[in-house]
């Protein structure tokens, strides 16, 4: 692994009265990663990125912005729905002059990625979603994430025993007020976007046919937040989509199965290039 290329570069993206932090590392084609409801913070241990990101950075230039309304700054006035974040990130791509972007989103980030892709795919090389929110399937029971304590969230989203225990014991430690504030802010913005309708946009399903880039749907076999039926539905509804199911994984698939998650993304991109 070429560690030297994985030095984290941090910058600010200032746009629409909002300044958010962007972390970049690795070398290769641009991969824009949109984080989930927990924010970008949990994806780093100090300067060390989570294992799936390190793995992705061996093949891609990983670009990881923190969504407006997450991190240290209160949400901007214009942020009201998931559509606002979709337009914001389409602007982000444009402002940064990015082309042939591999857009990858987990959970809430997957929903943002879908809302972007139904609007404009001209700068995208591919799309990858994992545990994405965004649609509602009749009769498929979803858990109420907003009634979970943080302990319950980890218990319900991580399948791997060792990882779950590790995350639970980290939670039991006294976390700094700054970190606590970031967690509360992340959940506040998630509620703003997804309280009602619950983590979906009733209109999105009518426009998924517009996604005209190759799409990889990576899904956990034991996802309790967005059960596998959701992954299967996305794979059906998006015109050029491939479903990859990862075994022994929960909703935080990229944490439960970091290497297989990153490999699935990299292999998909490689096949496209070939």
């Amino acid at each position: 692994m070429a560690k030297s290329k994985q030095i984290l570069e941090r910058s600010k993206f200032t746009w629409m009265d909002c300044s958010s932090e962007v972390v970049e590392f690795g070398e290769g084609p641009a991969l824009l990663y949109l984080h989930g409801a927990g924010g970008a913070g949990p994806l780093f241990d100090g300067e060390k990125p989570a294992a799936f990101l390190e793995q992705l950075a061996t093949r891609f230039r990983v670009i990881l912005p923190e969504h407006p309304g997450f991190g240290d700054i209160d949400r901007p006035e214009w942020l009201r729905s998931i559509h606002d974040l979709a337009y914001y990130y389409l602007d982000f791509i444009e402002q940064r002059g990015l082309r042939d972007v591999h857009l990858v989103g987990s959970s809430l980030g997957g929903w943002i990625a879908l809302e972007m892709a139904v609007r404009n795919t001209s700068a995208l090389a591919s799309l990858c979603i994992s545990g994405a929110a965004g649609i509602r399937l009749e009769g498929v029971q979803r858990a109420d994430i907003f009634l979970w304590s943080r302990e319950e969230f980890i218990q319900n989203c991580i399948v791997n025993d060792a990882k779950r225990e590790q995350m639970l014991s980290a939670l039991a430690e006294n976390i700094s007020p700054e970190r606590q504030a970031r967690v509360l802010r992340a959940w506040e913005t998630t509620a703003l976007l997804g309280w009602n309708p619950r983590m979906h946009d009733p209109q999105l399903k009518y426009w998924l046919h517009r996604i005209n880039v190759p799409t990889l749907v990576v899904w956990a076999d034991q996802d309790r937040v967005t059960p596998l039926a959701y992954g299967e539905a996305f794979a059906r509804m998006i015109p050029v989509a491939k479903l990859t199911v990862l075994a022994e994984a929960g909703h935080l698939t990229h944490i439960d199965q970091p290497i297989r998650f990153a490999d699935a993304v990299a292999t998909f991109a490689q096949e496209l290039a070939a």
């Binding site: 009634l147 304590s149 959940w187 506040e188 913005t189 509620a191 703003l192």
Partner: peptide
């Protein structure tokens, strides 16, 4: 607590 104090 999550019932008493929902996010936001």
């Amino acid at each position: 607590m999550p019932m008493l104090m929902p996010p936001g």
